[in-house]
């Protein structure tokens, strides 16, 4: 079922968030999930409420209409959150599993320290997105950004996958970002379009995509287009570059033992 089919049917439950404090809103979300089987929960008139879905362990699909506040889906384990609007700072902070799909832009530190799950942002993201992402065993978090990123994308990155598409850029227009992957010691960042060496952290190497990279990027681009529309083949036609950590232990020689 595509996003479109889901939107045309009615959600199982709805909450009108107008004027509701985040604490009450989250309590009502938990109540709604306890009341009975709820696969889809719509939140209407959301206006800056923080922590929506924070710490939630469930497989519910939450549709947010409006603008959720900071720390959307922090520490979350399982749910899918779809935002029809922009997301603010700290979306997916320490995300464990689940998905956050933002039909708009997302703010600073999107995906901070996420260890699993996936975040798709249709437009751009703020500063330090994907900072300290990690991975563990089968959990490999994914952050896909349709637009561009502010500086320090993937800073201190220790694992996972970041895909930066730059769909709003003209052909050959360079990515307007710097310090990408500063302190990176794990994971991989794929960038579509032009990015110069001086825009990268010192710990970052660049390479052509290999077959397995291409398969991964293709899958993510198809998923991206599934969420937000667009022609995946057209997106994939542009050049991609792979950024990877040069050292597993960037600060290994800092100390006297």
């Amino acid at each position: 079922m595509s996003d479109h089919d889901l939107l045309s049917s009615d959600p199982d439950q709805e909450i009108d968030a107008h004027g509701v404090h985040y604490r009450d809103l989250n309590a009502r979300i938990r109540q709604a999930l306890q009341r009975g089987p709820c696969q889809r929960l719509a939140l209407r008139h959301v206006c800056g409420q923080r922590y929506i879905g924070t710490g939630l362990r469930s497989h519910v699909r939450i549709e947010i209409h409006g603008t959720p506040g900071n720390d959307l889906g922090a520490f979350m384990d399982g749910p899918t959150i779809i935002v029809h609007g922009n997301a603010q700072d700290g979306s997916g902070n320490t995300l464990n599993s689940g998905e956050i799909i933002v039909h708009g832009r997302a703010g600073d530190i999107t995906g901070y320290a996420m260890r699993g799950g996936r975040i798709f942002v249709r437009d751009g993201v703020g500063y330090r997105a994907g900072i300290h992402m990690k991975e563990y065993a089968a959990r490999r978090p994914v952050l896909v950004i349709g637009g561009t990123a502010q500086p320090f994308l993937g800073e201190y990155m220790a694992g996972g996958v970041v895909l930066l598409l730059g769909l709003n850029l003209q052909a050959d227009e360079p990515h307007p970002t710097v310090h990408v992957g500063t302190g990176m010691h794990g994971g991989v960042i794929y960038v579509r379009g032009a990015i110069e060496d001086w825009q990268l952290g010192r710990e970052v190497g660049r390479a052509e995509l290999e077959e397995e990279d291409r398969v991964l990027v293709e899958r993510l681009v198809y998923d991206f287009a599934g969420h937000f529309g667009g022609d995946p083949q057209a997106i994939l036609r542009a050049p991609f570059v792979k950024l990877f950590p040069l050292y597993l232990r960037p600060y290994g020689n800092l100390y006297a033992y």
């Binding site: 260890r115 300290h132 990690k134 991975e135 563990y136 065993a137 959990r139 201190y156 220790a158 694992g159 302190g183 010691h185 794990g186 597993l248 232990r249 960037p250 600060y251 290994g252």
Partner: peptide
């Protein structure tokens, strides 16, 4: 919940 043998960096 990190890979074996990598530095665990706490910023």
């Amino acid at each position: 919940m990190i890979p074996v043998g990598t530095d665990a960096l706490s910023p």
